[in-house]
């Protein structure tokens, strides 16, 4: 009986040594999952999720501090992608964070703009051009539609307009048929 106990004990000690060594040898620095989550976020940097941009939100998700349904610009697509990546169940968008809306871009009414540069400081992607006392303008192709420039503007000259629909961006619609579309659950 004693020998059996001792044998198991020694075996366990050996495995303990091995595991202790492995823990030091194979220590992973950093967290690659943050990059993967970040890659799925829409990068509007709008802060609607409650974090200061997409990457902080990604870090929070990875740490389990934030839920995956806090990104209104990404909408359902992003939630599904995140659920897939993290092996979670998709859930509906957190309504408190806002609604998934059509994509918009900011446009500055150049007649009204007084050139205060406040919006330039607010823009998370440096998509607004201009200098002090000069009229500003938004680079449409780089604007993420985050709406962060609207609040600082003292003269309310910025408005959000829907992205123009072009024949080249047109997408074939999902086929209409008698069948009800099924959820994206695989076989």
């Amino acid at each position: 009986m004693l020998t059996a106990m001792l044998a198991i004990g020694i075996l366990a000690a050996l495995f303990g040594l091995l595991l202790g060594y492995a823990a030091i040898r194979f220590k992973v620095e950093g967290d690659p999952i943050v990059d993967q989550i970040d890659a799925l976020l829409p990068q509007t940097q709008c802060g609607q999720c409650g974090f200061a941009g997409c990457r902080p939100y990604a870090r929070a998700i990875a740490a389990g501090e934030a839920d995956i349904n806090q990104c209104p610009p990404g909408g359902e697509t992003t939630i599904h992608a995140l659920a897939d990546l993290l092996g979670l169940d998709p859930k509906p968008l957190d309504a408190e964070r806002g609604e998934h809306a059509e994509k918009t871009v900011a446009v500055i009414d150049e007649q009204v703009c007084i050139g205060c540069t406040l919006c330039i400081q607010a823009c998370p992607v440096d998509a607004i051009l201009g200098a002090a006392k000069q009229m500003h303008t938004v680079i449409e192709s780089e604007c993420t539609g985050c709406e962060l420039c609207i609040a600082p503007c003292p003269v309310d000259c910025i408005s959000m307009v829907p992205v123009k629909k072009d024949i080249r961006d047109w997408k074939w619609p999902y086929p209409q048929s008698a069948q009800r579309p099924v959820a994206a659950s695989g076989e």
Binding site: A12, F15, G16, L19, G20, A22, A23
Partner: peptide, 12 residues
């Protein structure tokens, strides 16, 4: 429990 031997201890 140290994290590296956590699982073996639980199993034991």
């Amino acid at each position: 429990v140290r994290p590296e031997v956590r699982i073996p201890v639980f199993v034991l």
